[in-house]
């Protein structure tokens, strides 16, 4: 896929009265053409150098992509968790999904099927460079978890025997230190995460992303393209303010050719711990995520109610559904996880 062309095409459809930041010259051959940056129309264009360098780069294949494909060959399923909106629970969902997948075979045994299957190997990659939440949600404090660099690459941090994670949080000496990086530096680190982490044989790799549709997202999709990702799970909260951003994210997936495995509605209604009655905090003005999924023709995986205990479990870094298996939210989590597995064509629990 030609990403340079993609980005060019993905700019906002500007109204005619608004000038582009750097307008293309009249006979612009287009950044994806062979003549990009070299045609006579390019002379004097502020983007000439960029187009020219991209054109020369296209003739040679990025050697890192081959390395990423090789590294990812031992990973069976690659799932990206996305949301245009921040704070809707991407990291919470990613962490709980990873916990659930890592304990899937145990649930299998508990159901009595009791086959002597190997536990699933699960990896969780946090590409939210500026606000990594995964270390805390997996219960790994920064002090005692450092990614070791070996001859073969980086060793991820292990939560359990079969659950490993990488995050920029494991690379910081001071957890409060801000990572003030512009795009290219972030892209470089994401590439390293994909190319150099020694996961070993993995059944699942869950990739948690920051909000938005920018550098991190383009990079993950672009680099993973070589390794055939399974698709994306979109997380949202029910209110319109979140849904307008999430719609953009779905369109992003469609544009870059990433399959949407389904939509999860988080923070859907609040059950009072005192009287057990449900009330709505974030109103579904336009029908919530279910209606949006219908409109886009993509699967709706389920709703997770707002439960104060979920936030507490995340702060403590423990699987919520294991501590509160009888809770409504746990039931929803399980049914959503089953939906995810079904869309991947896998079955682990009974």
């Amino acid at each position: 896929m030609n990403f340079f062309g993609e980005i060019g095409a993905c700019g906002p459809e500007r109204r005619s009265c608004v000038p582009a930041a750097a307008p293309a010259p009249a006979h612009c051959p287009g950044p994806e053409s062979e003549a990009a940056g070299t045609s006579s129309a390019c002379a004097g264009c502020p983007n000439r150098a960029i187009c020219a360098s991209a054109a020369s780069r296209r003739t040679t294949v990025d050697p890192d992509l081959a390395a990423i494909r090789q590294r990812m060959a031992s990973v069976k399923h690659k799932v990206v968790v996305l949301s245009g909106k921040g704070g809707v629970g991407k990291s919470t969902f990613s962490a709980q999904l990873a916990f659930a997948l890592a304990s899937a075979h145990e649930r299998c045994g508990a159901d009595g099927s009791g086959s002597a299957r190997e536990p699933l190997q699960v990896g969780l990659m946090d590409v939210d460079i500026c606000g990594p939440s995964i270390p805390r949600m997996l219960g790994i404090e920064a002090e005692d978890a450092v990614m070791q660099q070996t001859a073969g690459g980086w060793t991820p941090v292990y939560v359990n025997d079969n659950l490993a994670a990488v995050s920029v949080g494991f690379l910081l000496e001071d957890p409060d230190e801000a990572v003030v990086w512009r795009g290219p530096k972030k892209n470089g680190l994401i590439k390293q995460f994909l190319r150099e982490v020694e996961w070993g044989e993995l059944d699942y790799l869950v990739i948690d992303t920051p909000p938005g549709t920018s550098d991190e997202h383009l990079s993950v999709v672009q680099y993973l393209k070589a390794a055939n990702p399974d698709g994306a799970i979109i997380v949202t909260s029910p209110q319109d303010v979140a849904l307008i951003d999430v719609r953009k994210e779905i369109r992003f997936c469609q544009r870059v050719g990433l399959r949407v495995l389904g939509v999860v509605e988080n923070m859907s209604g609040f059950v009072c711990p005192c009287c057990r009655k449900e009330s709505t905090i974030f109103p579904k003005t336009s029908g919530g995520a279910q209606k949006m999924a219908q409109d886009f023709g993509i699967p709706f995986l389920g709703k997770i109610p707002l439960d104060p205990l979920i936030a507490r479990s995340c702060d403590e870094g423990r699987p919520y559904f294991a501590a509160h298996p009888e809770a409504e939210a746990s039931q929803q989590f399980f049914s959503i996880f089953d939906g995810v597995l079904a869309s991947l064509g896998e079955q682990h629990s009974a």
Partner: peptide, 23 residues
């Protein structure tokens, strides 16, 4: 807001850093 510059409210702004800086 960037929202005032797009015709289609669902259209994503898929921009890398340099383009964001310029706007």
């Amino acid at each position: 807001s960037m929202g005032f510059l797009t015709d289609d409210p669902d259209a994503p702004i898929i921009w890398r850093g340099p383009k964001k800086n310029s706007i």
